[in-house]
Simulated assay, not measured.
Amino acid sequence: MRHQTIKQKWQGMSLIISATAMVAATFFMRGQEFTATGGIIMILTVPFSIFGFNGIFEKFSKMMPAYVHWGFLLYLFGAVATVNFGMRGVFNELFGITIPDLEIATRQHPAIFTLVFFAIGPAFPLSILLLGINLYRKKLSRRWIALLLILGAISFPPSRVSRVEVLMHLCDLLLFIPMVAIGLKMIKNKE
Results as ranks from 00 to 15, higher is better:
residue 1 M to L: 11
residue 1 M to A: 14
residue 1 M to T: 07
residue 2 R to H: 15
residue 5 T to A: 13
residue 9 K to T: 02
residue 11 Q to G: 01
residue 14 S to K: 00
residue 15 L to I: 04
residue 21 A to G: 14
residue 21 A to F: 14
residue 23 V to H: 02
residue 24 A to S: 13
residue 25 A to L: 05
residue 26 T to D: 06
residue 26 T to W: 04
residue 31 G to L: 01
residue 32 Q to A: 04
residue 33 E to A: 04
residue 35 T to K: 04
residue 36 A to C: 10
residue 37 T to R: 05
residue 37 T to C: 06
residue 38 G to Y: 10
residue 42 M to L: 09
residue 44 L to R: 00
residue 49 S to M: 14
residue 50 I to M: 09
residue 55 G to I: 08
residue 56 I to Y: 08
residue 57 F to S: 00
residue 60 F to Q: 12
residue 63 M to I: 14
residue 65 P to C: 03
residue 67 Y to T: 06
residue 69 H to P: 00
residue 70 W to T: 11
residue 72 F to C: 06
residue 72 F to N: 07
residue 73 L to T: 06
residue 74 L to I: 02
residue 74 L to C: 03
residue 74 L to S: 01
residue 77 F to R: 00
residue 77 F to N: 00
residue 80 V to A: 06
residue 85 F to S: 11
residue 87 M to P: 03
residue 89 G to Q: 09
residue 89 G to L: 09
residue 98 T to M: 01
residue 101 D to M: 07
residue 101 D to V: 05
residue 101 D to E: 06
residue 101 D to Q: 06
residue 104 I to C: 02
residue 109 H to S: 13
residue 110 P to H: 12
residue 111 A to Y: 11
residue 112 I to R: 05
residue 114 T to N: 15
residue 114 T to Y: 15
residue 118 F to G: 06
residue 119 A to H: 00
residue 123 A to I: 05
residue 128 I to K: 05
residue 129 L to D: 08
residue 130 L to C: 02
residue 132 G to D: 07
residue 133 I to A: 07
residue 136 Y to S: 09
residue 136 Y to C: 05
residue 140 L to C: 09
residue 140 L to Q: 10
residue 140 L to F: 11
residue 147 L to A: 10
residue 151 L to E: 01
residue 152 G to F: 04
residue 153 A to E: 02
residue 154 I to M: 03
residue 155 S to W: 00
residue 162 S to A: 10
residue 165 E to S: 12
residue 168 M to S: 13
residue 168 M to E: 14
residue 169 H to D: 06
residue 169 H to E: 09
residue 169 H to Q: 15
residue 173 L to A: 15
residue 175 L to N: 10
residue 175 L to D: 03
residue 178 P to H: 13
residue 182 I to K: 08
residue 183 G to F: 13
residue 191 E to F: 08
residue 191 E to W: 10
